[in-house]
Write a protein that binds this DNA or RNA. Structure first.
Lengths: 117, 117
DNA sequence: GGATTACTTAGCTGCATGGCTAAGTTTGAT
DNA sequence: ATCAAACTTAGCCATGCAGCTAAGTAATCC
């Protein structure tokens, strides 16, 4: 369905950088050009552009050329595989804890009731 | 409150590796020793251990020595900062889309009603 | 048309990461 | 006491990543 879907590797790697997370956080509020995004970052523009490119490669943003400016905007859907994976692991983990709770609860009930036979 | 809380950098970096995600997914089902975790991974044990160590450094797992074995278990809470960050960005992004919807809806209503004055 | 803006390309550097082998060390089994 | 299992340490290597400067190109502005 999606044109391409970058791996969790690519996704998490893209999110592992403060600069890139900043960019994303800014774009969550709305589109911006590269120079606008760059403002406030103490970093040479080419280095900064690399980060933008990596976000694009990860499918987290899309960019288009408008005159001499490159406009970037966020693709929020791209986050879902990451969220899903996280929720899944958390679910399994919680499930285990709950089952452990049940187990302990049963032990306690057994003790209160005393041995039956 | 937490003993230490690793940065989002550390967290997302730890999640950016398939081997490490595998380990985590396995541990979500319950504790295991290093050798148990290692089984099925075509990789030398020392290399594998490095991954375990990185997960531990990220606070995603805890390990303790039991005799000659090292037992690992998942610390599911450690995932929450990552989940929170993701949800926050998604929220902002969705919010923007919704406001845009409202805007379009208003335009349409204006058109249907016709200009008032 | 010439200057300025906004990237873009190219090429370099230092350091971190992910992998390996070989050689310990500690603990458990016999 | 010896042997095997389960790590653990040490040291090496190739690649990738984040940063830089310098120089180029394309669109606007004056």
């Amino acid at each position: 369905m999606a044109k391409f879907d970058p791996s969790l590797d690519t996704l998490f790697t893209a999110l592992a950088e403060p600069t890139r997370r900043d960019i994303l956080a800014r774009l969550a509020r709305g589109p911006a050009s590269v120079t606008e995004l760059h403002a406030g970052h103490a970093m040479a523009l080419p280095s900064f552009l690399d980060h933008v490119r990596k976000l694009e490669a990860a499918g987290l943003i899309a960019t288009r050329k408008e005159g001499r400016r490159r406009i970037c905007e966020m693709k929020g859907e791209a986050l879902t595989p990451a969220v899903h994976w996280l929720e899944e692991q958390r679910g399994l983990w919680q499930g285990r804890l709950d089952r452990f709770d049940d187990y302990v609860l049963n032990l306690m009930k057994e003790r209160d009731n005393g041995p039956r036979s």
